[in-house]
Amino acid sequence: MREVFYSKAVNEALDEELSRDSSVIMIGEDIGCYGGAFGVSKGLWEKYGAERIWETPISEGSITGIAVGAAMMGMKPVLEIMFMDFVALALDQMMNSAGKLHYMYGEQVTVPMVLRTPGGAKGGYGPSHSQMLSNLFVGIPGLKVVAPSTPKQVKGLLKSAIRDPNPVVFIENKRLYPQKGEIPEGEYLLPLDKAEVLSEGTDITLISYSSMTPVCLAVKNALQPHGINLEVVDLVSLQPLDTDTIFASVRKTGRVIIVEEACLTGGVAGEVSALIAEHCLDSLEAPVIRVGAADAPIPSSLDLEKFVLPQADDIVQAVKRIREWA
């Protein structure tokens, strides 16, 4: 094992797959000598050249369609959308082409593309550069959606996503890029459809993904000395959801808090909550609680931002509430 930054783990996955398979290409804005807005693709343009790393004008709608068309013809494009907020401009090609073509064209084509994009707030980036828009993609048939939280996950999953024959929305996170974690030596792949129990516990299950997972782990560590033993389950895959792992944890603890950075309404937490209600009602000892962003735009001011985005204390309050339930 060795310690690397989350962003470096992404870079290693890209490097290894570009080196392994000549049909892998990258498409995106400022991914050339600049190395990507967050430096994730640094060095790749120098190493693989402009015939593999296609740096584009600012045209999210069309570069997404270009990735789709190239994928249909046997390439494996990895598309970078600089901020997840900008996927609004790419959405038509993702929902009306990428997710549908294999099905609607009678299985004559596949669309083996990856849309990589960093979601979530980094602190002070404001309403159009801070959103976690996972909810936009999970309701579109034909798309796989993953949102890794650790360097180990992000590397193994990105390599699997690039090799998958289906379009994969790969949600990275700006707040996670500078976080370090251990990854295995040598090559490894991780399955795209599995959740991960990151820390076992007995009292309450915290279910989360992406940037909220380290917050949940921190809450667990903070409450441990108070005799509260939390289990932390990282969804990793948002579409499909790994219901086996989710339900097993719910049946063990009987109490569930679902935490996400996206707006509370219409989000992944609501979907997980509904599945638990449908399948695990007998195991529940308290109502399922969701913790997420307020249904409001994310303000630029750091002082205001914390009132909109979920904080560690919101999770602590939810733990308190769920423990007090008769």
């Binding site: 369609g65 068309g69 190239a70 994928a71 073509l101």
Partner: peptide
């Protein structure tokens, strides 16, 4: 939404302008 890869026909498209970038992606390939 009709396609025939055997005849090198990459598909009709129901979104106005939707096929244009797809075609460019095919040309890139």
């Amino acid at each position: 939404h009709m396609c025939s890869m055997d005849e090198h026909f990459l598909g009709t498209n129901g979104i106005t302008g939707g096929g244009i970038p797809i075609a460019a992606g095919a040309a890139l390939a």
